[in-house]
Amino acid sequence: MRVLITAVLILLLAGCSSPPVRERDPEPLNDGRKQLLPLSGLKHYTAGFGSLSFQLPEDVDYEPLSTSADEQGAEVRTWRAPAPDGQWCVVIAGEQPDYRGAFPAAAIAAFAAGREPGGEIRLNEPIDPVPGTMSGVSQHSQYPIIPGDLSSAPGALFVRQFLTEESTLISLNVAGPVSTIASCRLEEIASTLQRS
């Protein structure tokens, strides 16, 4: 009898000490900050070892400007589309492998500096990571395009960054005049960065 009771106790304790069955992580909630808006005629670009991709609209004349890689293996690709008054809409995507910095703390701290008198930081906060990533940040600011000219039309910058599970920092940066946010699809392009 004593042996039987001991065996039952061991089984019960073993059951209690085993890790509970982990439920599958739910999909990140759409809290209203990241709206995936419909785009017409998409070009599909992949970054970060195939884990993330973003999309450029075909009805905006984004031309590839350059592709570069530095000594540390970071790759940067740039597109540019003409905007009124000789200005440009710019898309810069970068992927930096083996990133060891404090993310997103460093990204948020750097963006919070502003860097332009008269500029305005409208969004600078962590966002839910997309599948395949550990953390993310969404940023948006407006700034004077012409230095010191606070009365002229400002520019807009939209940034979306994720740190993948392979420690690759994916950064998508879209900028242009505020008047072209809709025509250049600035915000929409940034919002398309997601898992392939």
């Binding site: 970071a74 440009w88 404090a102 520019g155 940066n173």
Partner: peptide, 22 residues
């Protein structure tokens, strides 16, 4: 101090490219 880990500073590059050369 926050260790930025030599992160790419692409936001500044994008801002600079709106008005002219990147």
């Amino acid at each position: 101090f926050v260790d930025a880990g030599s992160a790419l500073d692409l936001g500044a590059q994008a801002r600079s490219g709106v008005g002219g050369s990147i």
